[in-house]
Design a protein around this nucleic acid. Structure first.
Length: 606
DNA sequence: TGTGTCTGCCC
DNA sequence: ATTCTGC
DNA sequence: GCAGAATGGGCAGACACA
């Protein structure tokens, strides 16, 4: 008799802890409807307290992920396959849904509405749980090879068919990687602190997150071992640390003011951020987002083994493509060709050698240096590294006035760098992941107020906006003008630099020029959602001109089969209403900009 | 077997 | 990457 | 000032499909 009762309680318990996906979706909906972080933290922390056995899966889904970034587990499906799934679910054509997306800018909401309008009741519907959804997504991530896309689609479809409208909204958002609820990692950090401790524990949880960047795991540990169990986490070679990032300021004098006297200043190399872990005889490399990139840089791995005079170490640096014969830094695009490479590794290593410039040390021989001031870390670094052809220490200097800073900055540019990093050397100058407190400040050539790097481009097309830009344009298609040929050739899209108000005004401003299809003078390989008679001219700032496989500006002129494009384009806020379309920047000017920016020889320190 | 599209990740 | 915005 | 969410160019790999 007694046994029977226990058994029943056990069952009830199992059913109770099982978080329904509908419950999660409704909480996500509530979170989405507020802009107040405190309310979000309230909602999430109470969710975490109830999640129990489902806590890891719950946090993963809250983040819209199935695994931490550094595990290299990807869904391999996103917007296009979500569109296919919704087409299949609703019986509509894919093109119809794509049109809707351009108009409405939220595939999740489109899916939700499709389901609401569907008359047929969900008779066969099986209730979704957090575990079930997570399990299905994990299954999707594990499929590969021929026919895998169809099978992934089928699994997604199974979920959608069993989903309530609001569940569809978030299933689609999770799959497309656009949660849009105003919650990202730091809000979850706060929520873990509140759920299993108090708000005052936020900094501590953040510290744990910095050295174990896996929120589901942290939430689980906080729940099962108590919040203070997180303090026992240790920096460990082999487990990546969240990278420290830099703020930006528009001038060296601003930096001087912020730094309060003396500060260190370093070359800012244009390459791949690389976190080096030496674990005895083993070396592992991680990217800024903590992906494991070890296999792509066997040359660096080998050299680190020789150059690092410590058993264990965690170091920070920038891997730069380099011509070892001419001592010249190569364009960023070159190292892109090594990142992610699996095939033809040997040939590519020979063609594109890489120099790693180290600039920080977070751990050496088991000693955690993250809480030690910059100067000490730097000293430890220089004492531990024996420079070689491929491993170097980033060039640095300590300055206390604008003139010396300026001189160093110009040196950096001469050497082919993007600019400089200013780093605090005060007592508080710890290694603090994320970009906070202006401990590191970057300053690039392009930040200078001079007009040098701006161009006046013509709007020839536009794209429907998503998320907070729903219903309007999200970006514009911009072109240069060729007077000789009377052609407008694209050189970039433009979606940054607009205030909300400017964005709101765009459709009105462009309406008079609206066309049904591309103007015959416009040459574009990109298919815009909206086309215009080239008329409106905007001032655009960029970092540099790059070779482009897609844009048609100056195609085949500098290089066969390639055009030119603008790297990091943004609207300066200046409408060049004084200019007509044919007065826009022309191709010749872009070519000149391209040639005048070639990298200079890196004389010393290389 | 070659090409185009999509995805994910660098900046 | 850059930029804008609400808190 | 922080945190989050819009948006850019462009690379390699995986897969679909002709």
């Amino acid at each position: 008799m007694k046994r029977k009762v226990d058994w029943r309680y056990l069952l009830v318990d199992i059913v109770f802890v099982c978080v329904r996906f509908l419950e999660l979706a409704e909480i996500l909906d509530k979170i989405e409807s507020t802009t107040k972080r405190l309310e979000m933290v309230d909602l999430i922390s109470s969710l975490l307290k109830r999640a129990e056995d489902d806590i890891r899966e719950t946090v993963f889904l809250l983040q819209g992920k199935v695994a931490p970034d550094y595990e290299g587990i990807e869904l391999g499906i996103a917007e296009k396959i979500a569109i296919r799934a919704l087409a299949s679910l609703s019986g509509l054509k894919e093109a119809t849904i794509e049109t809707e997306l351009v108009k409405k800018g939220d595939l999740g909401k489109i899916g939700e509405e499709l389901l609401r309008n569907k008359k047929q009741s969900s008779l066969l519907s099986e209730e979704l749980t957090v575990k079930k959804v997570y399990g299905s997504l994990l299954k999707i991530s594990k499929l590969s090879g021929g026919g895998s896309q169809t099978r992934k689609l089928q699994i997604l479809l199974d979920l959608l068919q069993n989903a309530e409208p609001v569940e569809v909204r978030y299933l689609i958002r999770i799959v497309t990687g656009k949660m849009r609820i105003g919650v990202a990692d730091m809000t979850i950090v706060d929520s873990i602190a509140v759920a299993f401790g108090t708000k005052e524990k936020s900094d501590m949880v953040e510290g744990a997150y910095n050295i174990m960047p896996n929120l589901p795991e942290l939430a689980y540990r906080a729940m099962s071992g108590g919040i203070d169990s997180l303090t026992s986490l240790k920096v460990t070679a082999g487990i990546p640390i969240r990278s420290m990032l830099a703020e930006r300021l528009p001038s060296l004098s601003d930096i001087l003011e912020k730094m309060d006297g003396r500060f260190a200043i370093e070359y800012k190399y244009d390459g791949l951020r690389t976190q080096v872990h030496k674990i005895g005889n083993k070396v592992e490399l991680f990217s800024r987002r903590l992906e494991n990139i070890t296999s792509q840089f066997p040359d660096i791995v080998e050299e680190i083994g020789k150059s690092v005079k410590a058993q264990n170490a965690i170091l920070d640096g920038e891997a730069v493509p380099f011509n070892l014969d001419t001592n010249e830094m190569l364009p960023f695009q070159e190292i892109s060709r090594r990142r992610g490479r699996k095939y033809d590794l040997k040939e590519t290593i020979e063609k594109i050698p890489v120099v790693l410039f180290l600039f920080d040390a977070m751990m050496i021989n088991g000693t955690n240096l993250m809480d030690v001031p910059y100067a000490q870390r730097r000293l430890k670094l220089t004492n531990t590294i024996e420079e070689s052809q491929n491993i170097k220490i980033a060039k640095s200097r300590v300055v206390s006035d604008v003139e010396s800073a300026e001189r160093f900055f110009n040196e950096a540019l001469e050497a082919g760098c993007e600019g400089i990093m200013a780093k605090s050397i005060e007592d508080k100058s710890i290694y603090k992941p994320g970009a906070r407190e202006f401990l590191w400040i970057k300053y690039k050539r392009e930040y200078q107020l001079e007009m040098e790097d701006t161009v006046d481009l013509v709007v020839v097309g536009a794209f429907g906006g998503q998320g907070k830009r729903s219903g309007g344009y999200g970006a514009l298609l911009m072109a240069v003008y060729s007077r000789e040929e009377d052609k407008f050739r694209t050189v970039c899209k433009l979606g940054s630099g607009f205030s909300d108000e400017q964005l709101d005004n765009l459709p009105r401003m462009l309406k008079p020029y609206s066309l049904k299809s591309r103007d015959h003078r416009v040459e574009s390989t990109i298919d815009a959602d909206f086309w215009f008679t080239p008329s409106l001219v905007l001032e655009v700032k960029g970092a540099e001109i790059t070779l482009s496989p897609t844009h048609t500006c100056c195609r085949d002129i500098v290089k066969k089969g390639a055009g030119l494009a603008i790297r990091f384009p943004r609207f300066t806020g200046k409408w060049r209403t004084d200019k007509k379309a044919d007065e826009a920047t022309n191709e010749q000017e872009i070519i000149e900009m391209y040639h005048s920016q070639r990298k200079k020889v890196l004389a010393d320190n290389a």
